[in-house]
Design a protein around this nucleic acid. Structure first.
Lengths: 172, 172
DNA sequence: TCACTTTTTCAGAAGTTATTGAAAGTGTAG
DNA sequence: CTACACTTTCAATAACTTCTGAAAAAGTGA
């Protein structure tokens, strides 16, 4: 396979995966483009490479920066902004997890806390709700703990350690 | 808070969370309704409870069954089908993870395997692509291993064990 | 200050995904 | 076979999301 064909396929694949991961297609494609670009790119270069509008590039690049996986680079004597992606894929994955934990798990925990205030009834309906709220709350806290712990993994070394622990656990 | 208010809030919250998790809003709401229902419900009952059409209920209930988190129940002498949700929230989470692993990680691994066939060039562009493909492939395999291991956790007991292992790991 | 370059915003257009509801399909009992 | 009770499908449409491009805002140097 030729280089250009490979690059296109990579951008395409990352875009598709991203959209099933709560990151929109274009955002993921910009991220892919920056991941395989050895140098930082300007807004214009991204527009040309992906054939999308200025507004679209601007909006999605800002989102990628909010996620902490793309950074702005300024060159002395040049007014343009250039962008490059975090190249450590583990760190990138951790940042995405962190953001999703904040955006999804934390609100869930908040709502479950509110729902614990529902008056306890002895009816089957009341008990089913109480059980569901309790179980989900418990699960959400556990998941939050696991992800928070993983956020603290900032090096590949540690990820390897973690994996080796997992591998040693004997499945039932 | 009153029971009915709590039930509505629960369904609402689960629907919102679901939609940020690749499960569509309605599918998640049906799941929530079944989770807090002590008895199995018919298509009509789901339609009435959520105010949605027959086709919509049918389509989403089938998807929930594909994910393995909702089951059909037949009552002797009744032609209607009744549906109930898996009530073990850990088992439910595991099944969702399993499905997402299959739908997202496996295709990613397949594409990275193809991209490894790109001819190796000494140019910065070639090397950047090669590195990205290699890193993502490695990461995807690790993630796949972790999730596959977790799939084998089928009891709360084991989840507790796992969590206690995680907690003991000293963060950097 | 102005002239110029670059970034940001946002209303409307385009594209995508979810929902409806009616028709077709399936299975069962008489 | 027919009538009935339900389930499934799917084309039309509604709802939602993303994208464009031009205008406004912001930034820079003289």
């Amino acid at each position: 396979m030729q280089l250009q064909e490979g690059r296109d396929k990579f951008i395409q694949a990352w875009g598709t995966l991203g959209s099933s991961w709560g990151i929109n297609r274009t955002m993921a494609q910009i991220h892919a483009l920056l991941l395989i670009s050895p140098i930082a790119l300007s807004t214009e270069e991204i527009m040309d490479a992906l054939g999308i509008s200025r507004g679209n590039v601007n909006m999605n690049v800002r989102s990628l920066m909010d996620w902490g996986i793309v950074h702005k680079e300024l060159r002395p004597g040049d007014r343009k902004e250039y962008f490059h992606a975090e190249k450590d894929i583990y760190l990138t994955a951790m940042k995405i997890m962190r953001e999703r934990r904040k955006r999804e798990l934390e609100p869930l925990i908040t709502i479950m806390a509110q729902l614990k205030q529902v008056e306890k009834l002895e009816t089957p309906e009341g008990q089913a709700l109480t059980k569901a709220v309790h179980d989900i709350d418990h699960f959400a806290h556990q998941a939050d703990t696991v992800l928070t712990t993983m956020e603290k993994m900032t090096s590949n070394w540690f990820t390897q350690q973690f994996l080796s622990v997992i591998k040693k656990i004997k499945p039932l």
